[in-house]
Write a protein that binds this DNA or RNA. Structure first.
Length: 476
RNA sequence: GGUCCCAUCGUCUAAUGGUUAGGACAUCACCCUUUCACGGUGGUAAUAUGGGUUCGAAUCCCGUUGGGAUCACCA
């Protein structure tokens, strides 16, 4: 049987990291087995729908390269793939389940609590009086137009068992299971029900979802069993945590995929990082493309304890991806962050010095702020013990640098560096005594991406000489 | 609170009864060096706790502690 998994998000907002990781594992489970990965939109809760949320789901999945084989936009054998468009499918199954004894009609008011004549609280989900109504009686009330729901009936006692691929054998007492609503008053199914029906109808072989469903899974199994359907293989995933106490949540502005993109993280790095949040390849390698993950992924190496999302390690990994980019690719990605630069700036050279120095693209602006305008720096910057420079040295050396550089014909780093090195030798100075003051004069900053000659290449000859000239006046 | 689940360096994790408990991020030191990075070398750092079982336990069992989840006409 070919493996089929589905990503079944509800379109209620942006895509957060935990969601994306679930989708990734679903995708990898399918692809590593040569199976199919489907996308199904679960929008049965009409109240919570968020405009544009479905597009975010499409865009995110496409951007990271997790292409689905069947889904709302591309169709497939088992469509439609949006639950609101499947509304008519569920009710017949619910009524059928009543006939089979797996559910019953319930006429209790919403909030599942009512008070009977004697003032006792009736709790439908554990002891529903409607459960004892005969099917004929219930149908008669429905015929009269009385609003109703269909609730799951749980008559079993003792222990329920099932096997989860990650957590092993899970044993739950039937007494613990509540008789939840399957079909709401408005005729829509609840998640519990729609999920089971769709997973069955769509031939899903592996149900992959968060570990919060671990205790309620026996209820799903009961439905499968009552219909005589084969239960799926369960793969429950531990949560992704923000810290030791809190799950990563949509609220609180916790990392969403969109936020990370905006902060200059690469989709490839994000995917690589979250793949390793709860799974490991069993080797000491940790840089993987999605295509590589598809080959080596295995459910057996999935972890069962929660993992804390560590932005610091993701940042490191993003840096690795940035550095592994070809010079041209890095340049293309960096370009949008190097806008508003004056004419004459050598952006290619700038990109070259930036590449090993940043870990996210968003760090570029702060690195290059001195290019637009030379900051009003303090003369103290010229003092550096290790370089054996101070204001006097700078004063003495600056005109020599100007002379040397104004004679330069080829304006590339090697030529410039050789020229200044020679200048130092001829004057019996240390390299640093020439290069350090030059760098300060060009940048006005203590630390810069690249040394004096690299900055000179970036700035171009005329701007370089102009800045050096300004340093002479400043030092005078 | 009932039930379910989890527990190795600060973080992500490896080690499926026998290892000096390994790697990565972070951190510290040194090297490289035209500042800063990159790169290189090395260091600090973990089996929550108490009992068993066993020749031998991070690994198996029980308790304790800590944490998470779940108990909706939300998914």
């Amino acid at each position: 049987m070919t493996t089929r998994t589905r990503f079944a998000p509800s379109p209620t907002g942006y895509m957060h990291i935990g969601n994306l990781r679930t989708a990734l594992y679903e995708y990898l489970i399918a692809k590593s087995a040569g199976g199919k990965f489907l996308l199904r939109i679960e929008d049965t809760d009409q109240k919570r729908l968020v405009e544009g949320a479905t597009d975010i789901i499409y865009n995110t999945l496409n951007m990271v390269g997790m292409h689905w084989d069947e889904g709302p936009d591309i169709g497939g054998e088992y469509g439609p793939y949006v639950q609101s468009e499947r509304k008519d499918i569920y009710a017949p199954y619910a009524h059928k389940l009543v006939e089979l004894g797996g559910a019953h009609y319930c006429f209790c008011a919403e909030r599942e609590k009512e008070v009977d004549e004697d003032g006792n609280e009736i709790i439908c989900k554990f002891d529903d009086p409607c459960k004892h109504l005969s099917i004929e009686e219930a149908r008669a009330r429905i015929a009269k137009g009385e609003p109703y729901t269909i609730r799951q009936t749980i008559n079993q006692t003792g222990k329920s068992h099932y096997e989860d691929k990650v957590y092993g054998i899970i044993e739950i007492d039937y007494d613990e299971l509540d008789e939840g609503v399957l079909l709401k008053t408005d005729g829509f199914p609840t998640y519990n029900f729609a999920n089971v029906i769709d997973d069955h109808l769509m031939g899903i072989t592996h149900v992959v979802r968060g570990s919060e469903y671990l205790p309620s899974t026996p209820k799903y199994n009961l439905i499968y069993d009552t219909f005589g359907w084969q239960r799926p293989i369960y793969v429950h995933l531990p949560p992704v945590m923000k810290d030791a106490q809190h799950k990563l949540s949509k609220r609180n502005g916790d990392a969403s995929f969109q936020d990370l993109l905006a902060k200059g993280y690469l989709p490839e790095a994000i995917i690589n990082y979250i793949a390793l949040l709860g799974w490991n390849p069993g080797t000491e390698e940790e840089i993987f493309s999605l295509a590589e993950l598809e080959k080596i992924f295995s459910v057996e190496r999935l972890n069962k304890s929660p993992a804390i999302f560590d932005i610091v390690k993701l940042t490191w990994m993003n840096g690795v991806y940035l550095r592994n980019l070809s010079e041209e690719d890095f340049y293309k990605k960096a370009l949008p962050y190097m806008d508003n630069l004056p004419d004459g700036i050598n952006k290619q050279a700038l990109a070259r010095v930036l590449q090993p120095r940043i870990e996210t693209l968003a760090q570029i602006p702060e690195q290059i702020d001195f290019i637009n305008e030379l900051p009003d720096y303090s003369l103290e910057l010229y003092i550096n013990k290790k370089m054996k420079t101070d204001i006097d040295v700078a004063q003495k050396v600056m005109p020599l640098i100007i002379n040397t550089l104004s004679e330069q014909v080829s304006w590339d780093n090697d030529s410039l560096f050789t020229a200044l090195k020679t200048l130092a030798e001829n004057n019996n100075l240390k390299n640093g005594q020439i290069l350090y003051p030059a760098r300060i004069a060009l940048s006005g900053k203590e630390t810069t991406p690249g040394g004096a000659t690299e900055l000179a290449v970036v700035l171009g000859k005329s701007e370089t000489l102009s800045r050096l000239q300004r340093a002479v006046s400043k030092l005078a």
